[in-house]
Design a protein around this nucleic acid. Structure first.
Lengths: 297, 297
DNA sequence: GTCACCTCTGAAAGATATTTTCGGCTCGGC
DNA sequence: GCCGAGCCGAAAATATCTTTCAGAGGTGAC
């Protein structure tokens, strides 16, 4: 299952981070060079870049392909564009990681900044076509299952809650065994969504595989577009991967990224089914009102 | 045809005008095409541009030379850069709400933008002193309860998961009755956190009240600093409230905001308890590793 | 520890794109 | 009408990019 990134203009560094794990050593060297000095690399031919990174032309081309371009030529053009953009638009860039001795005010600033960055990267890297396909499938689904464990499990529940609110039928089984038994019930026209950052969480892949084989439309939300989970996904939605540090585990940024994707799905579905979604939203709001005490003091 | 002056690449149109008189007819055609649609021309090969302008490759190359580039290849790179610059120069300026007939690409952009906004607002409005007090209490707590329902319930679970990962004892009872029975067990030195956007969710206030009366340190994470829940809170952490629209319920932005606050709490606590937190984090990471299948390629 | 297998890697062949060459062509002047 | 100057494009020559293929290196099984 191959998915192309939506906008080639999106942050290249983010793309490199996302795909780095699925790269071989020499490809990583090339990717690093490219992400580190776009302007410099744009001036080089395949051969030049191959020599600079101590690899071969073939590897350079392979890297370009992995980054979503048809070949090196196109990567080079994109690089030139990127360089020009950087030139004009000076990024402010808070570079340092969160340290043990940072003040709380620093922590707040850095966390907020990094999450903003994550959001921007995700938005830039999201494949609108795949998103559209997923939305269409969801809007028409008889029922929807959402699989996710750990931090991703919360995202799965979030999506489920939202879909229920607009009158769709959705489940987010937390127990992997139940997930599989649920998946068996799916058939063509139903939708199954797997959420996993690594893309290789067996307990999440398994129910998706079952759903896939039962003919349901399957969607994977993952940070690794080349990972096992995508084998069984009709549509792949890529979340961004930001560099992690000891104090800020990857789970944190992947959650932010996943939530944005899930929100987009939700809003998309709500648009498509507006006629029924709007009253359903209003109704669920009403139903909760009496649970909140009156005043604000 | 709009051209931006001043930027290094932007002078292309000017260059064309200056040199036009010394150009032959077919070269002018090429120069015009290039100045008129840099982005489009950047996508073409020599042959393509020659066909488009009804001329030959040789003429295209000659034109490139005249414009000051060593050959067409370099002109093309410059063109790509120019196009990217024009692209980015266009201010996005997202003002409008998400509408029913927005394209998915618009939805993605707007959602990302609004969430970024929410993050910035939250970071700016966060009371560092209260945050510090809450962190101190958490770091020293014998045990911690986190109360939240609905969307806030997921945030509560998120915090709980994280605290557990660094070796603290935390619970996020989902059932309001259990929450109260849990709260009864708390005493001085323990911490109770209530998460509610409205600040007036009875089922969340009640356990916090109990905890407060048992002498535990209580924290409220709410969007309404004047709401009932704050009566029983030693420390109040305010989340931002952005304007909501029909397609983007308040729950969405409050969740983003709440998660940032919760992340700050977590990182703060991890800093304070670094000695024990670091190995605990590493250990939980290890434990999960075998749940992920090997390959990614 | 050894073997078989699989993946990664770069050299070289093959395909494209760019540059150069060169001869035909047009157009103005005589 | 004839001549020359310079413009123009077809095609050859070159550079660049892409693909193929076989060896290197690592990994897991036995």
């Amino acid at each position: 299952m191959k998915e192309s990134f939506g906008s080639p203009g999106g942050s290249l560094a983010a793309k490199v981070r996302t795909l780095a794990p699925s790269m071989t050593r020499s490809m990583q060297r090339v990717a690093e060079a490219v992400a580190g000095d776009p302007a410099g690399c744009a001036a080089l031919t395949v051969t030049g870049l191959a020599e600079l990174t101590g690899t071969s032309e073939a590897t350079v081309v392979r890297t370009a392909r992995l980054l979503g371009y048809p070949g090196y030529r196109d990567l080079r053009l994109a690089l030139a564009g990127l360089a020009a953009q950087q030139q004009s638009g000076r990024a402010p860039a808070i570079t340092t990681d969160i340290a043990v001795d940072d003040s709380l005010a620093d922590v707040v600033t850095k966390l907020a900044y990094e999450e903003q960055q994550t959001l921007a990267d995700t938005a830039a890297g999201l494949d609108t076509a795949a998103l559209g396909a997923a939305v269409t499938a969801l809007a028409a689904a008889r029922r929807t299952d959402v699989y996710g464990l750990g931090a991703s499990g919360l995202v799965a529940q979030d999506l489920t809650q939202k879909l229920l609110r607009i009158g769709l039928i959705a489940h987010a089984p937390g127990d992997p065994h139940l997930a599989v038994t649920n998946a068996v019930q799916l058939r063509a026209g139903d939708v199954a969504i797997a959420i996993t950052h690594s893309g290789s969480t067996g307990d999440v892949i398994e129910p998706l595989r079952v759903a896939f084989e039962r003919g349901a439309t399957t969607v994977a939300i993952t940070g690794r577009p080349q990972s096992p989970v995508t084998q069984y996904a009709d549509h792949v939605l890529t979340t961004s991967t930001s560099r992690e540090s000891e104090l800020r585990p990857a789970a944190m940024s992947s959650r932010t990224s996943q939530l944005l994707v899930v929100d987009c799905l939700f809003v998309g579905v709500a648009q498509r089914t507006y006629e029924s979604a709007a009253p359903a939203l209003a109704a669920s709001y009403e139903a909760l009102a009496h649970r909140h005490r009156a005043g604000t003091r």
